[in-house]
Simulated scan of single mutants.
Amino acid sequence: MIPLGRGQRELIIGDRGTGKTAIAVDAIINQRATDVICVYAAVGQKASTVAQVVDAVRRYGAPDRCLFVIGEANAAPGLQWLTPYSACTMAEYFMGRGRDVLLVIDDLTKHAAVYRQVSLLLRRPPGREAYPGDIFYIHSRLLERAAKLAPELGGGSLTALPIAETQAGNISAYIPTNLISITDGQIYLDPRLFYEDQKPAVDIGKSVSRVGGKTQAPVLKALSESLRLEYAQFLELEVFTRFGTMVDERTRKVIEHGKRIRVVLRQPQFAPLTLGEEVALLVALSQGVLDNLPLERIGDFLGGLGAWLRTDCPEAAALGDEARPLSDDLRARLTASLNALARTLGPASQGSQQ
Rank of each mutant, 00 (worst) to 15 (best):
A317D: 12
R297I: 02
L193C: 04
W308T: 09
Y85E: 04
V247Y: 00
Q45P: 04
E196R: 14
D291Y: 01
V239Q: 13
A47N: 13
L223Y: 01
P268K: 13
E236D: 10
R145L: 12
D100W: 02
A342T: 13
E129R: 12
L220K: 05
A164L: 07
G258L: 02
P132S: 05
R58A: 09
D184P: 05
N74D: 15
I175W: 09
G7K: 03
I204H: 09
I163W: 00
A201Q: 07
G351V: 14
T18N: 01
P132E: 02
S286Q: 00
T49C: 05
R242P: 09
I182S: 04
K199D: 00
A317C: 03
G14W: 01
I2H: 08
L282P: 03
A91R: 08
C313P: 03
P268M: 13
G155V: 07
G127H: 04
A113M: 12
R128P: 05
R333W: 14
L273P: 02
S172M: 07
E129D: 12
P63M: 12
A76Q: 13
L338D: 06
W81V: 11
Y195A: 15
A56L: 05
N30V: 11
A348I: 14
D64S: 13
S207P: 09
L282Y: 00
T159E: 00
R333P: 07
I204C: 10
V202K: 11
G133R: 12
V219Q: 00
V53F: 04
V264I: 04
A168F: 12
I13D: 01
T83M: 11
R324T: 13
T344Q: 13
R59D: 11
S286M: 00
S209Q: 10
L309D: 06
L305E: 06
N74S: 15
C313I: 12
R99S: 10
R252S: 03
V118D: 02
S207F: 05
A307N: 15
Q233E: 07
D321W: 11
V25Y: 05
Q269L: 14
S172Q: 09
L120P: 03
K148I: 06
G213V: 15
L334Y: 02
Q117N: 09
L229Y: 09
R310H: 11
Q354M: 13
E256A: 04
G276D: 03
S140Y: 10
R59C: 05
R242Y: 07
L338N: 01
A173C: 06
S86D: 00
R97L: 06
A112M: 06
E315N: 07
